[in-house]
């Protein structure tokens, strides 16, 4: 296991190097000119030259890429082109907000959806199963944005159950996050329950389930002790791989509810051509995804003794 992990970490290096190079290439060669974006209509040649020098954009391609690699290794991505603030400060604050938005519905939603999926798979083939399948497919067909717009209008504005949008630090944030949590949970029900149901149905035909029932185990015991334990493996892998996306935030949700998370920061950076932020986000996402991919494989081996990492 140890050597496997070391080997995987070493394999990550060329992957991340490739991501960094591609990102850098795209933004430097094919990306927009951030200096003209910043200076706008009244840009004079002298101002363009001065700002390019200030941002280090007059350096050679190799030098700029080297500086970028140093930034990645030291986790110091420099300063925002837009505001001059340190990116580390911007990201620290943003990550906490994004996690407070995505983590609770992810955790509780997953648990809730597992229970619902178990319940539905128990009634496999019956009206409940068919109706719920239909409803979940319909709900999955509706755009995420529609959920946000409609529920914000109905539940916050029309009924006044929640604030329309906004954010305050600390525990005061809970009232602002309730509606986004509800929406995230609602949107995740369809795909999660469908996936979990498929996994459970796959397991319910197994011999060990038949054996458990034959031995007189109660249905809750069959579902929650025998079935769930074995079904947890694929559920776990699907769940862990989704964690990096919790950190990167729910872009559209953060915009509509004015939540100052990583997603909103990224969209603002894209609109303003703030390349340091965009480059940092791209590389960090790749790093997170690679790390959690590795973690998934390791957890898989830990949970299922039949799996041996080599």
């Amino acid at each position: 296991m140890f050597f496997y992990v070391i080997r995987r970490l070493l394999y990550m290096i060329p992957t991340l190097l490739g991501v960094a190079f591609l990102t850098f290439l795209l933004f430097t060669i094919f990306g927009e000119d951030p200096v003209r974006q910043a200076l706008g209509l009244h840009a004079s040649e002298e101002a363009i030259v001065a700002l390019r020098a200030k941002w280090g954009l007059d350096q050679s391609f190799a030098k700029q890429f080297y500086d970028f690699l140093v930034q990645i290794l030291t986790f110091d991505y420099g300063e925002s082109f837009s505001t001059g603030e340190k990116l580390s400060d911007i990201f620290c604050g943003g990550v906490l907000v994004s996690l407070s938005l995505t983590a609770p519905p992810f955790v509780f939603g997953t648990l809730f959806n597992i229970v619902i999926a178990l319940f539905i798979s128990y009634f496999r083939g019956k009206s409940l199963d068919k109706i719920s399948t239909f409803l979940f497919v319909v709900s999955m067909s509706i755009s995420y944005l529609v959920y946000i717009i409609v529920l914000q209008y109905l539940l916050a504005y029309r009924f006044g159950w929640f604030p329309i949008q906004g954010f305050e630090p600390g525990f005061s944030s809970i009232s602002y996050l309730m509606l986004p949590w509800f929406i995230i949970g609602l949107v995740s029900m369809g795909p999660d329950i469908r996936l979990f149901r498929t996994i459970f149905l796959d397991q319910v035909k197994s011999d060990y389930i038949r054996t458990a029932r034959a031995k007189g185990a109660s249905e809750p015991r069959v579902l929650f002790v025998h079935l769930l334990k074995n079904a947890m493996i694929p559920i776990l892998t699907n769940t862990v791989i989704a964690i990096p996306f919790l950190i990167t935030g729910a872009f559209v949700m953060e915009r509509y509810f004015a939540l100052p998370g990583i997603g909103d920061i990224t969209i603002t950076a894209i609109n303003e051509g703030d390349f340091p932020i965009i480059k940092a986000m791209t590389v960090m996402s790749a790093v997170l995804y690679s790390c959690f991919n590795l973690l998934t494989d390791v957890l898989y081996a830990l949970v299922d003794p039949r799996v041996k990492l080599s």
Partner: peptide, 18 residues
């Protein structure tokens, strides 16, 4: 000054008297 990047919630807040 509330940060409201999208126009729909801005209009809803306005209609709400906020």
């Amino acid at each position: 000054l509330d940060y409201i990047p999208e126009s729909q919630p801005e209009m809803l807040k306005f209609k709400n008297g906020e």
